[in-house]
Design a protein around this nucleic acid. Structure first.
Length: 361
RNA sequence: CCCGCCGUAGCUCAGCGGUAGAGCGCCCGGCUGUAGUGUGGGGGCGCAGUCACCGGGUGGUCGGGGGUUCGAAUCCCCCCGGCGGGACCA
């Protein structure tokens, strides 16, 4: 694993994660388990959302840690969740879009094994595993493992495939013979279900790594990695009527600035403050990092900081005004997104245009 | 991963410091029928039936391992297994 000490590898894998279940298992398997296999499954649901950068960064960490990383384009899963109007062609296009973005997040894609759900579903062994998993769990347990899909879940008509969904997530992990399952904290239920049944079925018990989710820019709800019934299709519509809703990797510099400047950002408060979260999870993902807060002399003049901790202290104490925070955060987010956006447009502008035309239809 | 409940007879469970129990099931018999056992009567055997009922019988590493105690199914700790819930936000 590169030339890093094992403890440094563990630290890199765990940094900025909400939780790792469990760190002990991770350490143990790095010491004795040989080459580890890991994955992240994503539901292609439209345009790449800035919240996804958080898991993308973590994914990059895992690749750099020498873990054999799979990337599962969960096309069938997305179809079950009615993403993109249930149009599998569009869903596949969205999957390609995500792969394209990841390339421009400096992930060495040559080391990544991209797998489409179609490949899994085409293999009868996959379904054999799924049936074994189903045999080991109660109906109540499966229900509990499925992420509530959308706010209208009570009245939402649920078809039976929704119950197969968690079983597929578990089967994905076993089928790919993984040591590590990476995902947003909203994936916890599925990962825990996999851990619950792994030993019973003789599969490897996956170590689960969960990254944080971003609070939506309005301060209500979440920009989920997955699980919303209203897919990005409607999120994009929303963003036209409510420009501050979310940031997409395709947003222009001005759009990003505008969205951030309009975002919910309670003074002196860090919890559920989306602007501070952007700083914490995206700008300061790598620390230390030099960040200059430009501000007029009459408001205290410029500040130079290197860690999120410093920023948080300044903000909580009230020494940093929300407006100055937003301007600084916007600048840095723009700097981070711009090269990704430009790279993606250059590489797959056509794909993107096609996707956007459908998404905003 | 976290929390809670449960694990005692084949099944459902009670017992919760002082001789391991109940109901159901299961086995045997009672009961019914016999184109067989050369014939008729009787009985036995065999075979078949038997919802319920009656009599008798059968039921156990009290999930595993440690510990406390004169004594543990019972109290304490660890583990295993089952079930339910929780697990950013809602």
């Amino acid at each position: 694993m590169l030339n890093m000490a094992n403890s440094d590898v563990v630290d890199m894998i765990c940094r900025k994660a909400v939780e790792v279940v469990t760190v002990d298992e991770l350490r143990d398997r790095i010491l004795h388990g040989g080459k580890l296999r890991g994955y992240l499954g994503f539901e292609p649901s439209g345009l790449f959302h800035i919240g996804w950068l958080i898991w993308a960064f973590k994914y990059r960490d895992l690749v750099n840690a020498g873990i054999d990383m799979y990337l599962l384009a969960a096309t069938w899963h997305a179809w079950i969740n009615d993403k993109l109007g249930g149009n599998l062609d569009l869903i596949r296009a969205a999957a390609n879009h995500v792969v394209s973005v990841l390339k421009h997040v400096n992930i060495d894609i040559s080391k990544v094994k991209v797998v489409y759900a179609e490949e899994l579903v085409d293999d009868r062994e996959y379904w054999g595993i799924l049936i074994k998993v189903a045999k080991r769990v109660s109906l109540a347990r499966v229900r509990r493992a499925l992420t509530i899909m959308g706010r209208k879940s009570e009245e939402a008509e649920t078809d039976f495939s929704k119950l197969i969904y968690p079983l597929m997530q578990v089967t994905d992990i076993f089928y790919l013979d993984l040591d590590v399952a990476l995902g947003g904290i909203d994936q916890r239920k599925a990962h825990m279900l996999a851990r619950d049944v792994a030993d019973k079925l003789g599969f490897k018990k996956p170590i689960a790594i969960h990254t944080p989710l971003l609070t939506s820019l309005q301060g209500v709800g979440r920009m989920d990695i997955k699980g919303e019934v209203d897919d990005v299709l409607s999120e994009v519509k929303m963003s036209k009527s409510r420009p501050e809703s979310a940031i997409f990797i395709t947003d222009s510099d001005d759009e990003i600035r505008k969205k951030i400047m309009n975002a919910y950002c309670p003074p002196k408060q860090v919890d559920l403050n989306p602007v501070m979260e952007l700083a914490k999870y995206i700008i300061f993902y790598d620390e230390p990092k030099k960040v200059v807060i430009e501000r007029p002399q009459r408001f205290g003049g410029p500040l130079e900081i290197y860690t999120y901790r410093e920023l948080e202290d300044l903000y909580i104490s009230g020494k940093l005004h929300p407006l100055d925070l937003k301007a600084t955060v916007a600048d840095h987010i723009v700097d981070i997104v711009r090269p990704i956006r430009e790279g993606v447009i250059k590489e797959s502008g056509e794909l993107l245009a096609g996707l956007m035309s459908h998404v905003s239809r």
